[in-house]
Design a protein around this nucleic acid. Structure first.
Lengths: 297, 297
DNA sequence: TTTTAGATATTCGAAAATGAATGGGAAAAT
DNA sequence: ATTTTCCCATTCATTTTCGAATATCTAAAA
């Protein structure tokens, strides 16, 4: 074939394209910066076009690169589907299973589950990705996801593993200093801590007839972790699942009348992977572990 | 990413899958047989499934391999589209242009055209693929194709470059020995030479009211070349374009009443490649060269 | 029975790809 | 003004990958 280039170079190209610099791409891919630089140059000569303009702070994609990137994405997706198809047919109960979950779940809930699981499933390694961006299961960025919303795509299999009540909290000292708000109007005089990427609380209020928007939150953070730490530090009023907040004695729950709709937790995997022994084992184990866990308070 | 394998291995896998043996794949890919063997094993361990059963005469795909192959084909197609997109944006008038044409066109028509073209377009190399299977332009198996039928796909640009009259021929000695048939019925007592993969002659007869089928041809060959050589050797009666047959003094044209529909010749390229300087140059040159050629006799 | 042809597997030296270290430059922070 | 912090490019020793040669096996042909 004529139009034949080293297919691995597309990987490096995409990483550099997405992250904007060789160095950043190197950090994310596990390759070295010189290697990525070479890959990009090699791809450029083998395709016969200039893909990036090298500048002081990174590689700026040329118009050609923008066009190529789109097709390269399809290419990568097809590659992911191959891996997924293969994983679905693999019958060995060993290897690595990749789980993705939100920061909070990954740091406060999973650790106690993963330990016993690794003991129960020798031969299986777990890779845990704590991210609040939703990884793409269809592309096999992860094998199993724990999500807070019910997945809609047809290719996914899902199972609701918990309903998590949410409460309104602040530290004891914060409330002593600023008082305990009781009506929605009083909330507006407080620092309310919000998590940027979720409209869970907004929808919760809407469902009980209160219409609020992002400005309701005086302190907005893009990290669940940071938001909860801010709450713990007495920076203001926040929303948290009971199971998490109840671990901290200095957090006080109040305004229980504002009953936010409970958060749902879903275990999700790709349908193809139902047949993979190792992924099935982990999926089932996670499901059972969450079922035995009392997250109601 | 977890499901991450060496994308180049997919190339080797497809070659081995299609050709059925490491050795055959080695011949076709330019890699060596040990390398392909290693690639397949490597892919197997990295995907976690067995792809082939090694046997005395080749590698037999497992069911898993059959499933994977389909997706791998998509993968390869996407790779081809990347190459095509890139080629379309390449503005350098140098490099290799890949042309595909039928055996006959490639051996008797193109040589006289390609010489002057290479002189006129320094920096451009030509790769000529003489095949009667239609190469896939959409996948960039070739840049430019010369075809005998009007292409239907929307993504292709095409230009009719010639109408080639077809005549009925036999060698002088054949006709002296067996007589000159005049009616269709008389043809049936002769050895008529046909080319397996084309129904051109069949349709030609149909268009003037004679219904015949493959059994009309006593000698069927899957190579245009071989068929024409058989005609030249006096093996029977055959059909040939005038420009080709008229080069041979011992071929006699007869039965001109059976006017086969003239063969059309199309120059075809992918629409994306209209913008590629080097491909455009070759395309235009070929178009002009054929226009200046008298193929009517 | 022996030979031939075609297949995969193995060995080993050569070639290619890789990454750590380093150099150098420009913007941002101090 | 100076330091720090990002970048990218280059160099070189090391690791990885590759192919020629070879061994071995099997079915078919001689």
């Amino acid at each position: 074939m004529n139009g034949d280039f080293d297919w691995n170079l597309a990987k490096s190209f995409l990483a550099v394209f997405d992250l904007g610099s060789l160095s950043a791409a190197a950090r994310s891919t596990g390759l070295s910066q010189p290697t990525l630089g070479r890959h990009v140059s090699e791809l450029e000569t083998s395709l016969g076009i200039l893909l990036f303009e090298r500048s002081r702070d990174g590689l700026k994609p040329t118009p050609a690169a923008l066009a190529i990137a789109q097709e390269a994405r399809n290419f990568a997706d097809a590659g992911g589907r191959i891996a997924m198809l293969a994983a679905g047919r693999s019958q060995s109960v060993s290897g690595t299973v990749r789980i993705t979950a939100s920061e909070i779940v990954a740091s406060y809930l999973l650790p106690q589950i993963l330990g016993p699981m690794l003991a129960a499933l020798p031969g299986i390694d777990i890779e845990l990705v704590a991210t609040n961006t939703v990884e793409n299961l269809l592309r096999r960025d992860a094998d199993i996801a724990i999500r807070m919303v019910e997945p809609q795509q047809l290719d996914l299999i899902a199972r609701k593993i918990a309903e998590l009540p949410i409460g309104v909290y602040a530290t004891r000292s914060y409330l002593e200093k600023h008082g305990t708000p009781a009506t929605l109007e009083e909330f507006r005089h407080h620092v309310v801590i919000g998590y940027d990427r979720s409209d869970l609380v907004l929808r919760g209020f809407a469902s009980i007839g209160y219409s609020i928007d992002q400005s309701f939150f005086r302190l907005r953070m893009d990290s669940q972790h940071a938001a909860f730490e801010a709450l713990l530090a007495g920076a203001g009023i926040g929303f948290a699942p009971l199971w998490l907040a109840s671990r901290h004695a200095n957090l006080v729950r109040f305004a229980e009348a504002f009953s936010i709709r409970p958060m749902q937790m879903w275990l999700v995997a790709h349908a193809e992977l139902r047949t993979s022994a190792k992924i099935r084992a982990v999926y089932d184990h996670l499901g059972a572990a969450f079922a035995n866990m009392d997250l109601g308070r």
